[in-house]
């Protein structure tokens, strides 16, 4: 019941995001295709009836709360309510650490979505945001410190688990197999590399897609769903929830059928191979790892394809004459 309510809250945040229209037009950017949109109700329904969301809801993980907090943060940022947005982001980062990487695009989103006649400068927005975030996080961690009876041990057993990957239980991600196979002496190095890789997208995407911070967030959530230490289908469902906001670039995507098929195949084969490995004992870990590779490939092609479509859309704003024509990478 609690989980249904949380999912409904997420859906309402998602509908708020859709209502603002931040995905198609903002103060600094407007797509040529901004009329092609789904209604916010359709987007909310697409999230709620997504099989992955339903499966997540049935499994009752804590990541649902993180997802809800992230969506609330984005919804608040899209209406330029800096303080609530940062409070929600603080909550989600407090719950699972990785959302803290979303700060730059969220601040940009807050800045771009201001409707006041005299908008605040980026510096002002950033200062407010960071102050709120830091104080909220300090407060949350302080409360945890008091609640756990005045010891800091909870830090290593919560954030430490996220950062240092001590738990190598198989999941849909790429980390577990890699770190099982690795010699222990290289462990620290590769932990650094993997986290750096995850964090590296933030800067690059925020700069390149300066005009569309909401898209940066979508893209990052897709990347997190692939590359974070303990990904699950709830991360995928969060990414797929934001995807319908970009209905207007769907016609520009090139591999929709391919990626849908790949993801569906992986969805079916994943449990089958897991069953063969763990229960029937007739398969082995490589079966399952191979299918998680396929799953990640499918998702990364979706992200890459979406990125291509948005860039193409942006390019057509610059050069309206090229609309509907074939381009080629050289």
């Amino acid at each position: 019941m609690l989980y249904i309510i949380v999912d409904l809250l997420s859906a309402s945040s998602l509908m708020q995001i859709a209502d603002t229209g931040a995905s198609v037009s903002s103060r600094v950017f407007a797509s040529q295709r901004k009329d092609v949109r789904w209604t916010s109700a359709a987007i909310g329904a697409a999230f709620l009836f997504n099989p992955f969301t339903i499966a997540t809801c049935i499994a009752r993980p804590t990541s649902v709360f993180t997802n809800c907090a992230i969506l609330t943060a984005v919804a608040k940022a899209a209406t330029s309510d800096i303080v609530p947005a940062m409070l929600a982001l603080a909550l989600s980062s407090y719950l699972s650490l990785y959302p803290i990487l979303l700060i730059p695009p969220l601040i940009l989103l807050c800045h771009d979505q201001q409707t006041a006649t005299k908008p605040k400068t980026i510096v002002q927005v950033t200062t407010t945001a960071l102050t709120t975030l830091v104080s909220a996080l300090t407060a949350l961690i302080g409360v945890s410190y008091v609640l756990t009876g005045g010891s800091w041990e909870f830090l290593s057993s919560t954030y430490g688990v996220q950062l240092l990957l001590p738990d190598l239980t198989p999941n849909v991600g790429l980390w577990w197999y890699f770190f099982i196979e690795m010699f222990d002496s290289f462990r620290e190095f590769f932990l650094g590399v993997f986290w750096l890789h995850l964090a590296a997208y933030v800067g690059g995407l925020s700069i390149r897609l300066r005009n569309q911070p909401l898209f940066v967030i979508t893209c990052l959530l897709g990347i997190f769903a692939i590359f974070k230490p303990y990904p699950s289908i709830s991360d995928t469902s969060l990414f797929l929830a934001l995807l319908p906001l970009y209905r207007h670039v769907f016609p520009l995507m090139r591999y929709t059928f391919f990626t849908t098929s790949v993801i569906l195949y992986a969805t079916l084969l994943g449990p089958a191979f897991y069953y063969l490995w763990i229960y029937a004992g007739s398969g082995n870990a490589n079966f399952f790892y191979a299918i998680t590779l396929v799953w990640s490939l499918g998702l990364s092609v979706v992200v890459a394809d979406l990125l291509f479509a948005v860039l193409r859309d942006e390019w057509e704003v610059e050069r309206p004459d090229m609309k509907g024509k074939e381009v080629r990478q050289i």
């Binding site: 098929s261 569906l264 195949y265 079916l268 084969l269 089958a272 191979f273 063969l276």
Partner: peptide, 14 residues
Amino acid sequence: LLLLGMFLSALATL
């Protein structure tokens, strides 16, 4: 047909 192919290929492993 896509669904049929998908279900059957998963089934073929089991």
